[in-house]
Design a protein around this nucleic acid. Sequence first.
DNA 1: CAAAAAAAAGACTTCTCAGTCCTTTAATAA
DNA 2: TTATTAAAGGACTGAGAAGTCTTTTTTTTG
Lengths: 161, 161
Amino acid sequence: MLSRTSQYALRSVLFIAENSHARRKVGVGEVAKALEIPKYYLAKILRRLAVGKLIRSSKGPGGGYYLNSEDFDHPLIAIIESVDGPDSLKKCALGLNTCSSEHPCPIHFYIGPFRDSLLQSLSEITVGDALEQLKQEHVFIDNLLTGDEKKKSNSDPDERN
Amino acid sequence: MLSRTSQYALRSVLFIAENSHARRKVGVGEVAKALEIPKYYLAKILRRLAVGKLIRSSKGPGGGYYLNSEDFDHPLIAIIESVDGPDSLKKCALGLNTCSSEHPCPIHFYIGPFRDSLLQSLSEITVGDALEQLKQEHVFIDNLLTGDEKKKSNSDPDERN
DNA sequence: CAAAAAAAAGACTTCTCAGTCCTTTAATAA
DNA sequence: TTATTAAAGGACTGAGAAGTCTTTTTTTTG
Ligand code: FES
Ligand code: FES
């Protein structure tokens, strides 16, 4: 549905939003371990997000990634497009050159409404909204893992990630 | 949205349905040229569909691919799952291990309803239904191409595809 | 200023999907 | 029964996504 890269991006932004502010930044290692994302790969994604001004970063001791207040207003679609390129969700599901109701493919009218409302949702929902919803459900983003099984928070210091 | 392989598969099945029956079979080269799909790659996809009993094939002179009457009753989702593996559309959009309302990811409730109805559509609509709809729109499946521009049906015999 | 800490940058590897080509098998028809 | 025809099967290549590692730059702080 979404590329793995944009999955990583979305979860990371939410995690950073949850766990940082301008005076308490989080490092790539921290995010990578909490979300079980390959550290060096994540670093590239975060850089793209930073270039796109969706998150902030600062170097040096005490540095890391964080969100400032405007960043909470970005819609989720902006994160996806920032890492996957624009219109990655707007293409014809059968790969035709144009997707339109004038030149519909056999499944256009089945898929169209679904995709349109998905796109609409992702354009409306901001980072802040998604965070708010997680809060209401009493869920933390790092409790939602992709691995086979949620590991209990053991404290063996496997720094290598 | 859908993998290129399942895009090829769906269009091919519809084309074969449109252009064949037990006494008039179509060859892989014919399908490949009409739909502008790489011939040898298509051959593999058609074999997978044939193994999955979604289309029929026969070797030798006059052989090729065709659909028998039962094959028109297969839902479109069966074609997708046959080439992309089962549940390829049911996974969490953020890549979590389980997708459920009990363990929802931040966008589960935005995506869920739409995906469910898409899945429902693809499970209900049969090959015959889709064909019927194309007929009502006076559209032939090989008029829907993926290339840059629809070429006028020139007759230069470039057999090599 | 010097040392340390962290992101930025870039080279490199690995894996999967898509695409190509060649050989073998099965069916038909002469 | 032999030649021909078409799918089946399998080996190989290429491109792009994902993942890894090392070096460089920037910032802080002692
Ligand atoms: S034309 Fe295929 S999804 Fe719109
Ligand atoms: S849990 Fe992510 S889409 Fe259902």
